[in-house]
Design a protein around this nucleic acid. Structure first.
Lengths: 197, 197
DNA sequence: AACAGGCTAACGAACGTTCATTCGTTACCG
DNA sequence: CGGTAACGAATGAACGTTCGTTAGCCTGTT
């Protein structure tokens, strides 16, 4: 009988522990024990602890970016774009809380080269949201006094949702995402008549 | 000539370092070196590293709580209460970024007893915001579908502001706080006619 | 026979903390 | 005024752990 580790299992387990206790608060021994194995065995599947951290974050950013692309594909109206982008963001946060927590709290634990790669992807993600709000303001459909400021507030909403959401709670994740999509439109100052579509 | 350490100086320096590198990512040696002193000298002023962390967070929570009380004192109208509470929250975040960062990221590094004390204060702070939104909804002044959900979104806005705000930037902290106060009213579904007071 | 993947053992470094000692200043006493 | 006792605070050395990582071995499967 072989329980037999895999790279994926190591990374998934590490992700959960990093989210709970932080990167520096989690030892290779902790990860190994959770998997029922000795610490040295992990090195058959990953090259270092830093390697694990980067793999978690890189995978998570790619997932978020492609979910965002998919959500926006074929959506022309700028209000619907903001709604779709926000719903995608919130859904991603609610469905992958551990990965997202690691992404949000452990950027500082990345080696400089790894950090540059992750920050670039994060910026790409954020700039799409900024662009939508800016376009809506230019078109006179939103009336945010400062589009960038509203964009940051929207991007932060995912964290707000993640911090209290529990899958076993009153709401489904899709329902919460829709609710936050509406928050985003309101915050951007979208004309009230559009809000109840 | 005596540079001579003090408990306050140790705590302030530690706060900045904890905010940048995290509690576990900061050693007593790091703190001491920043102060131009050896690690063992710190123990003349604090009893342990954990003691430092708790002192930082306890002071920060007390400051936030009393700022909130002061902001709400004598404000009767529920819309103005939400605006005042949000402005107070955002201002506190913008003016004490290091303390707030530590409070938001290092709860997990607290010993169980210390954690209970801090979480109790944090809950007291959050419940005041929840109560305002709930009251506004009952009075028909707000129309959030789920008051608690809107409350969490409001509480998260401080983080959103803190993450991009720089004192040297385009906006003053009071201006940003006002802007976020308006976001909060919109998000709660406050009647549009009240928004431009 | 080859090998992947687990194991034990060991490493050097860094950690938080303690301890006895030394230093510099202040306050008192003759 | 000079000598000294006393005290707060900084120090280097040492402690027991824990850290991430490497090396070499052993076993079960192919």
């Amino acid at each position: 009988m072989t329980v037999s580790l895999s790279r994926g299992a190591v990374i998934d387990t590490a992700c959960r522990l990093f989210a709970e206790r932080g990167y520096r608060g989690t030892s290779m021994k902790d990860i190994a024990e959770t998997l029922g194995v000795r610490a040295s065995s992990l090195y058959n599947h990953v090259t270092s602890k830093q390697d694990i951290l980067f793999a978690i974050m890189d995978k998570a950013m790619d997932r978020a970016l492609s979910a965002q692309e998919e959500a926006l594909a074929g959506v022309g109206d700028v209000s619907e774009q903001l709604r779709a982008a926000t719903e995608s963001l919130v859904l991603d946060f609610l469905r992958n809380p551990a990965e997202v927590t690691v992404c949000n709290t452990e950027v500082r634990s990345l080696d400089p080269a790894n950090r540059a790669a992750i920050v670039a992807k994060r910026d790409r993600y954020a700039s799409r949201v900024r662009a939508i709000i800016a376009a809506g303001c230019r078109a006179g459909r939103f009336e945010a006094a400062h589009p960038d400021l509203a964009a940051f507030a929207v991007l932060e909403m995912g964290n707000g949702a993640k911090s209290w959401f529990r899958p076993s709670g009153r709401f489904t994740d899709t329902y919460v995402a829709r609710e936050y999509g509406a928050f985003a439109l309101r915050m951007a100052g979208c004309a009230a008549s559009e809000l109840r579509v």
